[in-house]
């Protein structure tokens, strides 16, 4: 197996709300290797978002160590984390987070605004263009978000996330706002980017989404409940019965239609 680019050791996150202490994460150990595609699953409140924010360097753990690409990011200062986010991490959000008044190309270019090493005007333009082409939107460069469909918006967001060839691409419920056909389209895009060598982490509660990943990490109450390959996970999944039932219904419906 390839070497780990992510190493979490005893990561804990404690929130204090008034007199109450909330243990969002209670000692998470996790290794993720180069070019893996991992789903993080779990019920609401299990700590998925907290873990995601930690992995994406938006937040720092209360205790524990986080090594990203051999560097101890859990000890870094706010501005150093901003630099890491700019260069090593790409985010995809459930609600796209595109700037309404900017074109697709300008939206994709956004991270370069905060980069001192992205080269000249031409280089920046070309990089954003090639990212848009990679997600199949080379013909929508000058469209604004309100001229794009939901799936296209998410493609723009993905182009923005992969612009800097990040070490990890993080997606938080990336298909949460999309219909099933568009979901399939976006998942196919993630799979293609993964095949091109990208490491991807997707937070989701949908088994369909997890099924596209190679590995599924399940959380419960701030701890890792299971960490299995997608096939193994499918067998032991508490949702497996439900998933099989759905499959059977779908097959029956197709038969009836035929």
């Amino acid at each position: 197996m390839s070497e780990s680019i992510i190493q979490l050791r005893g990561i804990a996150k404690v929130y204090r709300v008034g007199v109450e202490t909330i243990h969002a994460l209670r000692g998470v150990d996790l290794d993720i290797g180069r070019n893996e595609m991992v789903a993080i699953m779990g019920s609401s409140g299990s700590g998925k978002s907290t873990l995601m924010n930690m992995l994406g360097c938006l937040d720092r753990p209360t205790s524990g160590e986080y090594m990203l690409g051999g560097r101890l990011v859990s000890a870094m200062k706010t501005d150093e984390l901003a630099l890491i986010r700019n260069e090593e991490i790409g985010f995809v959000f459930q609600s796209f987070e595109l700037l309404a008044r900017q074109t697709a190309l300008e939206n994709v270019e956004l991270p370069l605004m905060y980069s001192a090493t992205a080269g000249g005007f031409r280089a920046r333009r070309e990089r954003a263009l090639s990212a848009l082409q990679r997600v199949g939107l080379g013909n929508r460069v000058d469209h604004r978000p309100n001229q794009l469909s939901g799936g296209q918006k998410q493609r723009v967001a993905i182009a923005r996330a992969i612009l800097n060839n990040p070490k990890i691409l993080m997606a938080d419920e990336p298909t949460g706002n999309l219909d099933s056909a568009t979901t399939a389209e976006i998942l196919a895009l993630f799979t293609r980017i993964y095949r091109e060598g990208q490491t991807i982490i997707i937070v989701t509660h949908e088994n369909d989404v997890a099924a596209h990943c190679q590995r599924v990490v399940r959380l419960r109450d701030g701890r890792i409940l299971s960490d299995l390959s997608a096939e193994e996970d499918f067998e032991v999944s508490p949702y497996v019965e439900e998933a099989r039932a759905t499959q059977r219904r779908r097959a029956a419906a197709e038969e009836a239609a035929a």
Partner: peptide, 16 residues
């Protein structure tokens, strides 16, 4: 506010 959150997520420092 969300735009500011996004800008920070893609690497804007507080100073920026």
């Amino acid at each position: 506010t969300r735009e500011i959150g996004l800008r920070k997520a893609v690497g804007a420092t507080s100073a920026a």
